[in-house]
Nucleic acid binder design. Structure first.
Lengths: 207, 184
DNA sequence: GCTTTAAAAAGTAAGGT
DNA sequence: ACCTTACTTTCCAAAGC
């Protein structure tokens, strides 16, 4: 009886230590990404759910924390790319993605694909672009989605091209290099999206 | 109308395995296979690439082998026999009769209609669509048990099939389902 | 889970000219 | 800007770490 009780203490002690480690890891990653407390809390909820459903087996705590953060950012509409998550955690992009798919499937979390629109506020503020440019970029993205021009394309590339076009249209021009660096895509990708968008959408102005 | 039977699939790759029923002394039979690669530390099997039919065979000491790359079941079987016959020149005890099993067939097809993948992701069941990672939408079909990759262009890849019929059926069922959900 | 093989789809990336 | 090469995803078997 005493031994069984002691074992429970020992196990719950380990569980608590693991949870404490996970939460500190989550805080570390979150601060490096500059995420608000609300997103950290959303991520901790995902992580706790993963633990309660015994989904940690065979997976590193770091990996589950990173995947929980990735999912929370998407759910809160302040997405970070898998590359950005992988950069701050000590988990590869491949594992974050794999663990994310596992968690969403096991916890029945169905998140819609990340919308390029969700990247506009962050990229625009880092580029010092006005709210008018942001609105124009969002308008361009919505037109593109309505015409099926975003299927299969990376959300960051679409957001970057839309911001580039909007900045030019509203006289707050940024170079493709500046936009590319902040969006984490190449200038070639911005040019490819730019060509599709300007050729297939009615921008009302010739660039 | 909406003839789904007109969907043409093209077999792109076939994976087959063979069990010779006799273990092989790889160092002994390897010389019969020109250009063969063998790095035990890296991989336990011999890697033998054939030009005609253009395939690659993985040969193991257990007497089992895997053949990949063929575009038809016939060529896959032919490639396996070519490799086995060559090894038999250095080891006469290798059986002439052995089992060959088709393990996987990869096929491509064209639905001849563009797809709005974000809409497909919302309405079609058992799908995964992460454009940040890959441009195709992953659709897992239960019967036949195959996996399809759907692209915005309307092109499709079907994999996991054990027969050409299953690959064909998989594409047809997918097209029917997309029409059913008004996603075509 | 990894290692090795092959193949298609389409987007993205990197290096060279 | 172009071209080439290469990596992402899916599937499967093999022997062994």
């Amino acid at each position: 009886r005493l031994r069984k009780w002691q074992r429970k203490i020992r196990i719950s002690g380990a569980t608590e230590r693991n949870l404490a480690f996970a939460l500190s890891e989550l805080d570390r990653d979150s601060s490096r990404l500059g995420l608000p407390r609300s997103v950290r809390e959303a991520a901790s909820v995902v992580y706790r759910n993963a633990v309660e459903n015994k989904l940690i087996r065979g997976r590193s705590i770091e990996g589950v924390v990173a995947a929980s953060l990735y999912a929370a950012c998407r759910r809160c509409n302040v997405p970070r790319t898998l590359d950005e998550i992988a950069e701050v955690s000590r988990v590869t992009k491949k594992e974050v993605g794999r663990t994310y798919r596992f968690l969403t499937r096991e916890l029945n979390i169905k998140l819609p694909p990340t919308s390029p629109v969700d990247y506009v506020p962050r990229f625009a503020s880092e580029l010092g672009l006005s709210g008018e440019v942001q609105s124009k970029a969002i308008d361009i993205i919505e037109q593109a989605m309505a015409k099926g021009l975003t299927s299969g394309r990376g959300p960051t590339g679409v957001a970057a091209a839309a911001l580039y076009i909007a900045s030019v249209l509203l006289g707050e021009r940024k170079t493709q290099r500046d936009v590319a660096d902040i969006a984490g895509v190449t200038e070639v990708t911005i040019r490819n999206r730019y060509k599709e968008l300007t050729e297939q959408l009615d921008m009302g102005v010739t660039l | 109308m909406t003839d789904v039977t007109d969907v043409k699939i093209k077999v792109e790759n076939i994976v087959a395995s063979a069990t010779l029923g006799k273990s092989l002394e790889l160092p002994k039979v390897a010389p019969a296979l020109e250009g063969v690669e063998y790095n035990v530390e890296q991989f336990p099997g011999l890697v033998y690439k054939l030009k005609e039919p253009k395939t690659a065979a993985l040969i193991f000491g257990s007497g089992k082998l895997v053949c990949t790359g063929a575009k038809s079941i016939e060529n896959s079987i032919k490639a396996i026999h070519i490799a086995v016959d060559k090894m038999r020149s250095l080891d006469p005890d290798i059986p002439h009769e052995f089992e060959i099993k088709i393990q996987n067939i990869v096929a491509s097809a064209n639905l001849m209609s563009t797809l709005n993948l974000e809409a497909v992701a919302m309405d079609l069941e058992n799908t995964e669509y992460e454009p940040e990672q890959f441009p195709g939408l992953v659709y897992r079909l239960g019967e036949p048990k195959v996996v399809l990759l759907l692209f915005g262009s309307g092109k499709v890849v079907c994999t996991g099939a054990k027969s050409k019929e299953d690959a064909q059926l998989g594409v047809e069922k997918t097209k029917e389902r997309l029409i059913e959900l008004d996603l075509i």
